[in-house]
Amino acid sequence: MAMPAQQITPHALPDDDAAATGRARRRARSAREGHRSAYWMVAPATLLLLLFLVVPVLLAFGLSFTNARLISPNPPRFVGLDNFVRAFTSDPTFVRSLVNTFVFAAVVVPLQSGLALLMAILVNQKLRFVTWFRVVYFIPVVTSIVVISILWDFMYQRDGLVNSILDTLTFGAVQGTNWLGNTSTALPAIIVLSIWQAVGFHMIIWLSGLQTIPEELYEAARMDGANAWQQFKDVTWPGLRSTMVFILVTITIQALGLFVQIDVMTQGGPRDSTTTLVYHAVQQGYRRQETGYGAAISLIFFVIVLVIALVQRWLTREKD
């Protein structure tokens, strides 16, 4: 995740050859003042993040080595690594959660970023009303995910709207199922709705990337006789590199954290086919009142996301 940090340091380092000049003295003084000002200016945000992110994470970290209960008259006991052992050895639902989370991310990341790029190219055309299409695609993004989950839950029923539409569009050839009640369709159904909700956001990001590519590059490519695909391959795609990294990272984090849709629509079922790590952590830590165990699952989750982020950063590093 440290990836973007490098990208935003273009003006950072002072140049050595400017030493011993008045400019350098002024700069040194200004740097000292800069220090003081900098501390003041990052202090509020840092303090708030410490209080409301770092402290709770550390609390969760500590709880994960205890048998703390949400509701109990007994004080928590230190249990060492018991919770972690339990997760990997005697909790089949945890293992399913792990698998489902990976499957979800593995499908959503390429599909959503690909569809978003396609849509971005569509709405980057110089056509009338194109702005309105951008707006329409963006509308699900501004709608609450709770509202959307309730709505799609209703539409996914056996006698629901989705099946009714499928039936009409295919003239009765496709007989829909009870999408969320079927072990083989529940996760795909949630994937569709998740992409539906979020893809507009990433479309806009791709669009911003597309619009930063100078038109002259395309002109030049056309002069060389490049067709549409070659233009995409040689001009568009290389120009979208940093956008691509950004999109990859944000979708991955978002996909790995899948929770609300599961909580509202399937509660992890049928037969654990939609349970995810975050859902399982909340389920164990809150609904089943095993705070210590839930915290341990959260901790495992953090480590996994961190590792994936680092791997992504390594794979997408600038190869100079």
């Binding site: 995740m1 440290a2 973007p4 940090a5 935003i8 340091t9 950072a12 002072p14 740097a31 800069g34 220090h35 000002s37 900098a38 501390y39 200016m41 990052v42 945000a45 840092t46 993040l49 409301f52 992110l53 770092v54 709770p56 994470v57 609390l59 969760a60 709880l63 949400l70 984090i253 954290g257 929770f259 975050v278 952590a281 909340v282 830590g285 809150y286 705070t291 839930g294 915290a295 959260s298 989750f301 953090f302 996301v305 961190l306 982020a309």
Partner: peptide, 28 residues
Amino acid sequence: LEWSGRKVLLTVIIATLIVPFETIAIPM
């Protein structure tokens, strides 16, 4: 601004993006 600790802090701040709120809600 140029100051010591800047890069580290920025990295830490960005790393916190991986924490989904639900997982820390109870300690919160």
